[in-house]
Amino acid sequence: MLFTGRITANAEVRTIKGDKQVTNFTVALNQRYKTKAGEKKEKTAYVNCSYWVNPGLAVYLTKGAIVEISGWVEAQTWKNREGKVQADLGCAVDTVKLFGSNGVKPNDTSKEKKAEKKAVAAGGGDDDDLPF
């Protein structure tokens, strides 16, 4: 399945059975539509993603980043403590394409670095290396 959405929280890397690592993150999928009466509505579905290929990608999978995910999606069910059946969507991710992010890596919290990134994005960077 192929889908595009926003990451809801910074990705987390976990080590499983010694040296195997998995990157876990959740993607929100929004659907906007109008009812027959013309009322605007919005639905959101959340997909819990597991990426087993490259744990180094986790630094780019930050809250708010827009990603395109390709992988195997399936519904997962379980019973909670009260015995009620719960369900969610899970995806074994094959590929990740990053379309946009919030511009700050999870461990990059200094105000100076944020201001520097904004200045470069706004055209305040060094123009000497531009080819035109």
Rank of each mutant, 00 (worst) to 15 (best):
F3G: 03
F3N: 06
T4Y: 05
T4I: 04
G5Q: 09
G5W: 12
R6L: 07
R6D: 03
R6S: 02
R6V: 01
A9W: 02
A9P: 00
A9Y: 02
A11G: 06
V13Y: 01
R14K: 15
D19T: 04
K20A: 13
Q21S: 12
Q21P: 11
N24M: 10
N24R: 14
N24I: 03
F25Q: 05
F25I: 02
T26F: 07
V27D: 01
A28V: 12
N30T: 13
Q31E: 15
Q31D: 14
Q31L: 06
Q31H: 15
Q31V: 11
Y33W: 15
Y33I: 14
K34A: 13
T35C: 05
A37P: 05
G38L: 02
E39P: 04
E39K: 12
E39W: 03
E39V: 10
E39C: 03
K40Q: 14
K40G: 11
K41N: 09
K43Q: 04
K43H: 10
A45V: 03
Y46W: 11
V47R: 08
N48R: 13
N48D: 15
N48V: 11
S50Y: 03
W52G: 02
W52P: 04
V53K: 15
V53Q: 13
N54C: 10
N54D: 06
P55R: 10
L57R: 04
L57N: 01
A58Q: 03
V59S: 09
L61H: 06
L61P: 14
L61S: 01
T62K: 00
G64E: 07
I66A: 05
V67N: 01
I69G: 05
G71A: 07
W72D: 14
V73D: 07
E74L: 01
Q76H: 08
T77M: 13
K79L: 10
K79T: 04
K79D: 09
N80F: 05
N80Q: 06
R81V: 07
E82V: 03
G83N: 07
K84T: 11
Q86R: 09
L89R: 04
L89P: 05
C91Y: 07
A92I: 06
A92R: 13
V93P: 03
V93H: 11
V93S: 05
D94I: 12
T95W: 13
K97N: 12
L98I: 15
F99S: 12
S101K: 02
N102A: 12
G103A: 09
G103D: 06
V104D: 00
P106E: 07
D108W: 00
T109L: 05
T109S: 09
T109F: 00
K111L: 11
E112Q: 14
K113A: 15
K114F: 15
K114V: 09
A115M: 12
A115C: 08
A115E: 14
E116D: 03
K117N: 06
K117R: 13
K117C: 02
K118W: 04
A119W: 13
A121E: 11
G123M: 13
G123F: 02
G125E: 05
D126H: 11
D126Q: 07
D127L: 07
D127H: 15
D127M: 12
D127C: 00
D129N: 11
L130K: 06
P131Y: 12
F132L: 13
